[in-house]
């Protein structure tokens, strides 16, 4: 069970959070001028790396805030947590 440091509430058990998948996926706009292929890539084709992954989490049973986490998908080590809008690196 992960221990996730919510940037607002501090370290809490994984059970308080919900994972929101890969972070920093830009929603293509204006949507109507995006090709079917590009739109499908946005919807369905996400990275699934073995190793470090930036992903979104929400403190669903806490402050309900979304934030970003960098987690190793093999070891589950978390090396960074940052708020939305803060720079990635």
């Amino acid at each position: 069970m992960l221990l996730i440091a919510c940037p607002w509430c501090g370290p809490r058990d994984e059970t308080e959070f919900v994972n929101g998948g890969e972070a920093h996926i830009d929603r293509p706009t204006p949507a109507e001028s995006v090709s079917d292929a590009d739109w499908a890539a946005y919807l369905f084709f996400h990275d699934n790396p073995r190793g470090w992954l930036a992903e979104r989490w929400v403190h669903a049973f806490g402050c309900r805030q979304w934030f970003n986490v960098e987690r190793d998908t093999v070891t589950h080590e978390i090396r960074r947590v940052w708020r939305l809008g803060e720079p990635r690196a």
Binding site: G20, R27, R56, R64, Q65, L84
Partner: peptide, 13 residues
């Protein structure tokens, strides 16, 4: 409710 929060926070802050 969670869905609305997600769009507000992540796409349209």
């Amino acid at each position: 409710a969670a869905w609305l929060e997600e769009w507000l926070q992540c796409e349209w802050p």
